[in-house]
Amino acid sequence: MDEKYTNENMLIERYLEGALSIEEQQAFEEQFLSSGELLDQLEAAERLQQGMHDVMAVQKAHIPEKATSRVAAFMRTPHYAIAASILVLFAVGLSGALMQENARLTEINTDRVVPTEIIPLVTVRSASDSGLNTLVLGDSARQFVMMLDPGFESFSHYRATVYQLKRTGKPAMLWQVDEMLPGYEDMLALAVPSSFLEPGDYQIQLEGWQDEWPTDHGFEPIDTKSFKITK
């Protein structure tokens, strides 16, 4: 077990690690007990290992903290706490204002988001007393979708106009939808927000238009439907 063998097989390092077999360890210990030079090497290796650990520990202790650590340190300061508190208060105030604004806008646009009620309108002489085509406004806003029969004659598109009937004077035009096309079950769907209606009698005039007609031709009357609005 000469120096070359010892170095090539890393006996010194392996002994310090406790990685030698029992036989190797016994032979190595017997050798270093009687060899001052090998013992010097062994002790130097032991001190080198310890010194390396110490140097690395010292270096680590002197490495400046990373940027993230500085941020973390700043976050622990009273200045940051005060600034964060102000921001939180501002955020809470802003959230409250936005919530109120949202509620207000919801109220304004209530007809766009309310439930829809679909009503097939039938032809009646007058909706006033028959009980047919009577729509109830109710307490909450809603959308009335009235289904209109376009009749047998086909048109390029249709126009529906809602009139509020007055006890005296001419009916007042309330709502008009153009460019209507038959959809579900070949019916025309006329949507009217409930917020536009008030209790009373109404009339829908349905007209047709052919694309080949000249612009001065005018809509062709198809049908008139009456309906009543109650509370």
Binding site: D40, E43, A44, E46, R47, L48, Q50, G51, M52, D54, V55, V58
Partner: peptide, 20 residues
């Protein structure tokens, strides 16, 4: 009488740093 035992840990640390 053994220099490896008498040398302090701090001295070894300095020597290792020089070596590196």
């Amino acid at each position: 009488s053994n220099p490896f035992r008498t040398v302090s840990r701090a001295e070894v640390c300095i020597e290792v740093r020089k070596l590196l």
